[in-house]
Measured scan of single mutants.
Amino acid sequence: HRQALGERLYPRVQAMQPAFASKITGMLLELSPAQLLLLLASEDSLRARVDEAMELII
Score class of each variant (00 low, 15 high):
A41C: 05
D44V: 12
A34E: 15
Q17C: 09
E7G: 04
R12H: 12
V13Q: 01
Q14N: 09
S22E: 15
L5A: 04
K23V: 09
R49F: 09
V13K: 03
L29E: 03
K23D: 10
L46C: 01
L56T: 11
A48I: 14
Y10N: 03
R49M: 10
A4F: 13
R49W: 10
A21C: 02
R2Q: 10
G6T: 07
D51Y: 11
K23I: 13
A15R: 12
L40P: 00
L9R: 00
I24D: 00
L28W: 01
S22V: 12
L38I: 11
E55C: 06
M54W: 03
A19C: 08
H1W: 07
L37E: 15
L39V: 09
S42E: 09
M16Y: 15
A34D: 09
L28N: 00
M54K: 15
L56P: 01
M16I: 10
R49D: 04
L36G: 02
V13S: 00
Q14D: 07
S45V: 07
L28R: 00
A53M: 07
E30D: 15
A41Y: 14
R49K: 08
S22M: 14
L56K: 13
E7D: 05
E55V: 12
D51T: 10
I24L: 05
A4M: 13
R2A: 12
A53E: 02
Q17L: 08
T25M: 15
M27L: 07
L38R: 07
V50P: 01
M27I: 07
L36P: 00
Q14L: 13
I57F: 06
P11S: 14
G26P: 06
A48L: 11
P11A: 12
Q17H: 08
A4V: 13
L9D: 01
A48Q: 07
L56Q: 14
G6W: 15
Q35T: 06
L5P: 03
L36Y: 02
A48C: 10
I24Q: 00
S42K: 09
L38C: 08
E55M: 13
S32D: 14
M16C: 03
I24W: 02
Q35S: 07
L37N: 11
R49T: 07
E7F: 04
F20T: 02
S45I: 05
L28P: 00
A48R: 13
S42H: 07
P33N: 15
L31T: 03
A4Y: 13
A53L: 13
E43Q: 11
L29V: 07
I57P: 01
L39K: 00
G6L: 15
A15M: 13
P33L: 12
E30T: 08
L28M: 04
R12T: 09
A19V: 14
E55Y: 13
K23R: 10
S45L: 10
S42V: 06
A15Q: 09
H1E: 12
M27D: 02
R47Q: 11
T25V: 15
Q35G: 05
L38A: 10
P11E: 15
S32G: 03
L31E: 08
S22C: 10
L36A: 03
I24V: 04
R12L: 15
R12Y: 09
A41S: 13
G26M: 10
L56F: 06
R2D: 14
A21K: 01
I57E: 02
L38H: 06
S32N: 12
A19G: 13
R8D: 08
S32E: 09
A19R: 13
V50K: 00
A53C: 11
A41M: 14
H1D: 14
L40F: 11
E52S: 06
L40G: 02
L31V: 04
P33K: 10
R12I: 10
L37V: 11
S22A: 15
L46I: 05
L39N: 01
A15S: 05
E55W: 12
L5E: 05
E7L: 12
Q17V: 14
I58L: 12
E7Q: 12
M16T: 03
E55P: 00
Q17Y: 15
A41I: 10
G26I: 13
F20H: 12
S32Q: 13
P18N: 06
E7I: 08
A19E: 15
L46P: 00
P33T: 11
L56D: 10
E7S: 07
P11L: 14
R8Q: 15
K23Q: 13
E30N: 06
R8N: 08
L46R: 00
L37F: 07
P11T: 15
R12S: 10
E52V: 10
R49H: 10
G6Y: 14
A41P: 01
E55L: 15
L31H: 08
R8I: 15
R49A: 09
A4R: 09
L29T: 01
Q14R: 13
S42M: 03
A53N: 04
K23G: 05
T25Q: 03
R2S: 14
M16A: 03
E43G: 05
L5I: 13
L37W: 05
L9C: 02
Q14I: 12
A21L: 03
L40C: 04
R49C: 07
L46K: 00
R47V: 06
E43M: 08
L29G: 02
A15K: 13
T25D: 00
F20V: 03
F20C: 05
L37T: 07
M27K: 06
L36T: 05
P33G: 05
L31W: 03
A41T: 10
R12M: 15
A21G: 08
L39Q: 01
L56M: 06
L29R: 02
L37Y: 11
M54I: 07
A53R: 02
G26H: 12
G6A: 14
E55I: 05
A48E: 12
A19D: 09
G26Q: 12
L29S: 04
D44F: 03
S45R: 14
M54R: 08
M16N: 02
D44G: 10
L38E: 10
K23E: 09
V13H: 01
L39S: 05
A4I: 15
Q17A: 15
T25L: 08
V50I: 11
A53F: 05
A19M: 11
F20G: 02
M54S: 06
E55S: 11
L56N: 11
L37P: 01
P18A: 06
R8V: 11
Q35D: 06
L46N: 00
